[in-house]
Amino acid sequence: MEYFLQQLINGLTLGAIYGLIAIGYTMVYGIIGMINFAHGDIYMVGAFIALMGFLLLGFSDVAYLSIPIAILLVLAFAMLFTSVYGWTVERLAYRPLRGSFRLAPLISAIGMSIFLQNYIQLLQGARVKPLPPVVQGGLNLTTPIDGGFAVTISYLQIIIIVMTVVLMTAFTLLIAKTSLGRQQRACEQDKLMAALVGVDVDRTISITFVTGAALAAVAGLMHVMYYGVIHFYIGFLIGIKAFTAAVLGGIGSLPGAMLGGLLIGFIEAFWSGYFSVEYKDVAAFSILVLVLIFRPTGLLGKPEIEKV
C-alpha cells in the first residue's frame, strides 16, 4: 500500500511535467493542425535557460533571497526567454510555409528540432550539466511500520504539483473566459472567418506558440530541479512522451492534454514500480499504439464530422 501511494505521488509529479509540455503540442495542433516537433526541444532550451537563471542568481551573490522567490525569479526568466525562442521558431520555420502543402511545416519542424539540439550542443557542450539540489527535504506521509518504509512527498514535488495546478487553472480560464482565448478558439475553428471579423490570425498563432513555449519552460525548470541534470538531448524522449500524452487525451483538447499527461506519468511510475524500469518507455509508447488503434481521437477528443 505504501509502495502504491509512493508511486502515485511520483507519477503525479511526472504527469505534471508531461501535461505542461503536452499543452503546447495540443494548442499548436488545434490552431494550425500541425505537430510542432520542435516543441520538445523548446522544452530542453527552457531547461537550459532555467539552469542559467539559477547559476546567474548563484553568482550574483544574492544569498539573502529566500528559495521560493529565487525559484519564481528563475521561472519568470525562463518563461520570458523561452517564449522568445518559441516566437522565433514560429516566425522563421512555420509562418513562411503557411499555405504551403501539409508536409512542409512538418519537415521544417523536424529540421528546427535538429537545429535546436545541435545549437545547444555547440553552445553548451555535449556533457551533462548538473544543478545541485535547490529544494531539499520532504514530508513523511506515513510512519514506517517495521520493515516498511515511509511514504514521502518532497517539498520539490509539492512545488511542482502546486505550480502545475495553478498554471493549468490559469490557462484553462484564459482559454475559456478571456477575449484572447475566444480569439484562439475562433482561429481554431475557422481562420478565414476569424480574420473577417477582425482577428489578427497570424498574431494569434504567434501568441499560441509563445504561451506553449512559456509552459514548456516551466516544465524545463521542473526538470532541472527534479532530476538535477540536463543535456542537449532531453527534449527528444520527453517531447515524444508529452506528444503521446496529447494524443492519448485527444489532440486539440486542452483538458485532454492534462489528463493524458497525468496518465502517462502514472503509467511510467507504476510500470517502473511494479515491473521493470527498463521497459517504462515501451509501456508508454505501447499505450500510444493502442490508443491510435482503438480510439484514434483520444480519450477526450471529439471525432471530426465533416458535413457534406
Binding site: S179, G198, V199
Partner: peptide
Amino acid sequence: LFQRMSVLENLLVAQHNALMKASGMS
C-alpha cells in the same frame, strides 16, 4: 459561424479588438 462556440461567444469574437484593448492582451 464558429460552430462549436455559443451563440453569444460568436458575437463576442466579433468585438474582440475592443476587448483586447481593454484587457491589456487578456
